[in-house]
Amino acid sequence: MSASRAWLACLAMVTLSCTSYRPLTPAPPGRTATLDGSGSQLRLSRGVALAFECVTGGGNPCGPGQPEVDDSKIARVFPMHANRPGGYATGSSAPQRHVVLGMSPGETWLRIPGESPVRVVVVP
């Protein structure tokens, strides 16, 4: 591997590790809808929907690819329209926003192309 390729791979790893997932909506009373501080785990109650956005370490929107969940019996994910995209210092376009829905208790992974995956835990 050439030095430039190694540098690019390193940069890609840093970028991947800095993907930020931000919750946009609260949980309904008595239910759970949280993203942990590092954005690596999302906890949802069954039946609860959570809107979130994905931002790269540089403040730009995550890639346009449609996210997927490994096990759609546990959780489903939908693209979301953003009416009023927030301002981003370095980003030039609206952040990618999605809605994840807890279907049944269990664990699975939510994957956005090119970004670090999120562990999804659905609780009763």
Binding site: P28, R31, G47, V48, A49, A51, F78, P79, M80, H81, V99, L101
Partner: peptide, 20 residues
């Protein structure tokens, strides 16, 4: 009895909003 999210979506499945 229970609780669930009701999604408001476009025909293409893009969520505009939701309500529990």
């Amino acid at each position: 009895p229970g609780m669930t999210a009701i999604l408001v979506t476009t025909r293409e499945g893009v969520v505009v909003d939701f309500h529990h």
